[in-house]
């Protein structure tokens, strides 16, 4: 890509908006995933009693439920990202391409 094109893209408010929004969103979701995972691992490492606690009168423990929550949340977070990326970010990218006359 020619340098002039790069400068044009960099100067475009649409581009700046796209990058700022997506980067912030990416880091927030990454932070959420890391937080959930580390929270789970730290509970496993330091609070075994909490993880062993029974749910209701059965044998299912809190640890198993939380483990499933971590698995489901990994899937849910990717879903949230993709939904937003396929809508908002792809629209912005298309706007940008139109601005640049491509």
């Amino acid at each position: 890509m020619a340098e002039a094109d790069t400068a044009r893209v960099l100067a475009s408010p649409t581009f700046r908006q796209l990058v700022t929004e997506r980067t912030r969103y990416g880091w927030i979701l990454s932070g959420a995933m890391l937080g959930i995972y580390l929270g789970f691992i730290l509970l496993v490492a330091f609070a075994k009693g909490v993880m062993a606690a029974k749910i209701g009168s059965g044998v299912t423990s809190l640890g198993i439920v939380l483990g499933l929550v971590v698995i489901v949340s990994a899937f849910a977070l990717t879903g949230i990202y993709v939904a937003r990326a396929n809508g908002r970010y792809d629209d912005l990218t298309n706007d940008l391409n139109r601005e640049l006359g491509r």
Binding site: L34, V70, L77
Partner: peptide, 12 residues
């Protein structure tokens, strides 16, 4: 869980 949680980060 350890195997799985890398994927979202790769995506983001």
């Amino acid at each position: 869980i350890g195997f799985l949680v890398g994927w979202p980060i790769v995506l983001f």
